[in-house]
Design a protein around this nucleic acid. Structure first.
Lengths: 150, 150
DNA sequence: ATGCTAGTTGATACTGTGTCTCATATGGAA
DNA sequence: TTCCATATGAGACACAGTATCAACTAGCAT
């Protein structure tokens, strides 16, 4: 389970933009680079700080638009943290879920497979026809669990 | 699956306040009544409008405090809607999940049981030690599914 | 290389949500 | 009835996210 390096991921972002017929602008490239360099989840505000720190500030609106775009391309996904705040995580394009470390913020993609039968059972019980669902798991990743408190 | 009436639920709210050693104030009673009268999920802002409409306006801060209190007593729960907004639903006190109708907002409590094995599997695979999770199901309730579009 | 144009940017203003403060009011025990 | 810890609410604040719009630019056509 070796994670791809940050610049490989940056290239993947840029390639995805081009493939989708989206313009590869300087701010989008910068955003892609900053997102790819991040470990764990991050907020729009953090990304703006990163950009500022990297000497290539990006306007607030542009950051939100870039993140929306990345999300619509399945490159990142919006998650709701336990405290009610919103954040983004880098992820695969297919439907899946996230296990998020509450200490370091790292996230691991989880396959949807094990949920299928449980979902079907709920549909039978409730009469609901499910169209979407969100599952977010919070805990400590192996390293954080091994290395200390909280 | 007959839902308790609104005033039975109001009483349950007031009883829960008293049981927890919390003061049964006028604004809290009003909030309890308004929450109990709602069908489906609602936001803090909606509850304020309800209070206004009922001729017993409640301050913004008080509404948030009352909802936080109800949530801490397990009388309501905060949910994150697919659009990223926050809302509240009335619910049982034990850990469970919600199936939320995207058309009428009605929500049905779902037991946690079917998730246990899936969770354990994820822990084995990822090395995470899970401490919390959130599952929200969105779809059409039986009535909305039967009675029309969307 | 150059020009063109649709799409993009970012400064700014705005909306809405939730929090904080603090003077005033009140529930409920004595 | 008195008293005081607790709750209230007006208003100011902090922050996320959106809307507007004039200026800019990516990338195509020439």
């Amino acid at each position: 389970m070796t994670a791809p390096s940050a610049d490989v991921r940056t290239d993947a972002f840029v390639a995805a933009l081009a493939r989708a017929g989206q313009r590869v602008t300087l701010p989008r490239q910068a955003a892609a680079r900053l997102v790819a360099a991040r470990i764990g989840h991050f907020t729009a505000a953090q990304l703006m700080e990163d950009a500022e720190a990297a000497g290539e500030p990006i306007g607030r609106a542009t950051v939100f638009r870039a993140l929306d775009l990345f999300a619509s391309l399945g490159l990142v996904e919006r998650v709701d943290l336990p405290d009610g705040n919103h954040a983004f995580v880098v992820c695969r394009a297919v439907h899946h879920h996230h296990a998020i470390c509450t200490r370091c913020g790292r996230s691991v993609d989880i396959s949807d497979a094990s949920l299928g039968e449980a979902l079907a059972a709920v549909e039978r019980q409730t009469g609901f026809r499910m169209t979407a669902h969100r599952l977010e798991l919070f805990g400590l990743c192996a390293e954080c669990a091994a290395s200390g408190v909280r």
